[in-house]
Design a protein around this nucleic acid. Structure first.
Length: 562
RNA sequence: UGGGGCGUCGCCAAGCGGUAAGGCAUCGGAUUUUGAUUCCGACAUUCCCAGGUUCGAUCCCUGGCGCCCCAGCCA
């Protein structure tokens, strides 16, 4: 297929995309309209990103539109702060809802009118049983439920009671409005579901105007219909609700009847995704807040250094299906590496400094070496890094007794200081405890810039930072939050017991090349040979930079050691 | 001993009657002043199992097996 025939970038096929394509081709729809319908009761996480990318992506690819609709039908749990965060997250991910910012609460009046219509049609009734009594009559998975004694209430009485509910004449729990469907249905959702309950709670948007609020199954389908949604995409657990979704729209004979389609939610290894667990981690201070860089929340991933593009790419590669999937965290990490490898400028930083004195190098002299900001992208330019007779190298890059296969610095061995000189280790200085405190090296003046004048091969190239010019900084090394693939899964009584004690390591006194002094905002770099790092925009201060490690580089050496 | 789903390579995932895409991982090999990147090459005679229909089945039928979801006045 040529690009002329398909102007849009070819995206992986999935069953939902196929349905949409077919519906457009058959003329069932001329425009695809989707929606992302979060409840503003928590922060968005990577699982939501999958849904956002699916809904906005579909609309975008087919020239349709995607609405952002807050499913705010339960004021007891919802807050405006969450709405703000959600809007910010969706924008950050790169999606735009345009004029279509909606709220289920905007439809409360219309929802109420439809409920009255249902009562008039004899399809809904006010039940005055307690929650416990209703549960008692619902039956079980194997036994049918029993009808409520109020099921036969006359229409006029239902109307009067429902009006009274709205007027606030009854306390919470006194009555509910139920659909009259089938108490013997094998689908529990169809056993006269409750669609309105009394909740004398102020709503963050409608204030005290209402004291009865519609339930999800009733409000969602009608909201979709009102907005002209064509494909109402949700997760698998709502599959059993689809008959109810369709029942309500059919009963009301609404002109727009969206098609509900369910897909498998995202499960990621080495983390947890449920709102409850995420909330507990924050409340019990097991993490440093919703935006802790170890959290799978969008604010957390952002602070960790993930780019919107990397998250979109991740969502694209994992695909969309109906089988319960478990994606390895490694896939997410690869997605950032892939994106950052192309766009992150390189820099040199020494995390665990080991002092190296270059013997024979003129004391007090400073040389400036040109270093490429990106080895494969000349357009990113170069910078100059200062060099003097004392530098810091990574402690890991020196081994007094080199292991087999180790080709960095060791006594008597040569290594290249990237962009500078080839040096040879001549001696090792230790303190009273036998701890190595300094290395002394000779250097080859002819290797200026790092190339061997005689063409001799120097296998190891290591990064370094001039002791005299380096800036000091704090660097936080993050690792997976949990040490088991499925925290809280079988054989694990509690997910908390699987927390990875090494998920954060804070390093003080790291030495960075001076060009990093001016880094600000969410600057991202590749610290050569170490990984990708992002300035912590919350904690960094002038003169005291703080970097978060987003991901390590792939490292076949450390893998080999394992 | 209810209902709804799902089962294709280690992890995702196309295909939906015509003889198993792709990505990630893995394993080789090349290039490399990042043990990175990039680059080549290898990687399911087989689609949960067993029967059946068919010239031909991962796709259709029958019967098993396994896993997930549902008994909120949550979404």
């Amino acid at each position: 297929m040529t690009s002329i025939e398909s102007p849009l970038p070819e995206k992986a096929a999935n069953f939902i995309r196929n349905i949409v394509t077919e519906d457009l081709k058959s003329g069932k729809h001329r425009l695809v309209v989707t929606r992302f319908p979060p409840e503003p009761n928590g922060y968005l996480h990577i699982g939501h990103a999958k849904s956002i990318c699916l809904n906005f992506g579909l609309a975008g690819d087919f020239g349709g539109r995607c609405h952002l609709r807050f499913d705010d039908t339960n004021p007891a749990k919802e807050e405006i702060e969450y709405e703000d965060s959600i809007k910010e997250n969706v924008s950050w991910l790169g999606f735009n809802w345009g004029e279509h910012l909606h709220y289920a609460s905007d439809y409360f009046e219309e929802l109420y009118r439809h409920a009255v219509a249902l009562i008039e049609k004899g399809l809904a009734y006010v039940d005055s049983l307690s929650a416990e009594e209703i549960r008692g009559l619902r039956g079980t998975l194997n036994e049918p439920g029993q009808e409520s004694p109020h099921r036969g209430r006359p229409v006029e009485e239902n109307l009067e009671l429902f009006r009274g509910m709205r007027e606030g004449e009854f306390p919470d729990g006194a009555h509910v409005l139920r659909l009259k469907i089938d108490m013997a249905s094998p689908n529990l959702n169809l056993r006269d579901p409750v669609i309105y309950r009394i909740k004398k709670v102020e709503h963050h948007r409608t204030g005290a105007v209402w004291c009865i609020y519609p339930m999800y199954d009733y409000a969602h389908c009608i909201s979709d219909s009102i907005e002209g949604i064509t494909h109402s995409i949700c997760t698998l657990e709502f599959e059993d609700h689809r008959p109810l979704y369709d029942w309500v729209l059919d009963a009301l004979q609404l002109p727009c009847h969206p098609q509900q389609i369910e897909f498998a939610r995202l499960n990621l290894s080495y983390t947890v995704m449920s709102k409850r667990k995420l909330l507990e981690l924050v409340q019990e201070k097991l993490v440093d807040g919703w935006d802790d860089p170890r959290m799978p929340t969008l604010v957390g991933l952002r602070r960790r250094g993930f780019t919107p593009a990397s998250i979109r790419a991740f969502c694209e590669t994992i695909g969309v299906g109906k089988s319960d999937s478990f994606i390895d965290m490694g896939i997410l990490e690869d997605a950032v590496r892939e994106d950052l490898n192309v766009r992150a400028p390189r820099a040199m930083a020494v995390l665990r400094p080991l002092k190296v004195v270059i013997e024979g190098y003129p004391a007090g002299e400073t040389e400036l070496f040109d270093a490429a900001n990106h080895p494969a992208d000349p357009a990113m330019g170069t910078r100059q890094v200062p060099f003097c007779d004392t530098v810091y190298i990574e402690r890991d890059d020196f081994q007094e007794e080199p292991a087999k296969g180790f080709f960095r610095l060791a006594p008597g061995r040569e290594v290249r200081l990237r962009y500078a000189y080839i040096v040879r280790c001549e001696s090792v200085l230790k303190d009273a405890d036998g701890e190595i405190v300094e290395i002394r090296c000779s250097y080859d003046p002819g290797s200026r810039g790092g190339s061997a004048p005689d063409g001799r091969k120097v296998k190891g190239t290591i990064h370094w930072v001039s002791a005299r010019h380096a800036i000091e900084a704090e660097v936080r090394l993050y690792d997976r939050l949990f040490s088991t693939p499925n925290p809280g899964g079988k054989n694990e009584p509690d997910y908390r017991s699987s927390l990875n004690p090494k998920s954060i390591e804070t390093l003080a006194g790291c030495r960075l090349e001076p060009s990093l002094e001016g880094a600000e905002g969410e600057s991202r770099y590749q610290f050569e040979r170490l990984g990708y790092f992002c300035l912590d925009s919350r904690d960094a201060r002038p003169g005291q930079q703080v970097f978060n490690r987003t991901a390590t580089l792939r490292d076949s050496w450390s893998e080999q050691k394992r």
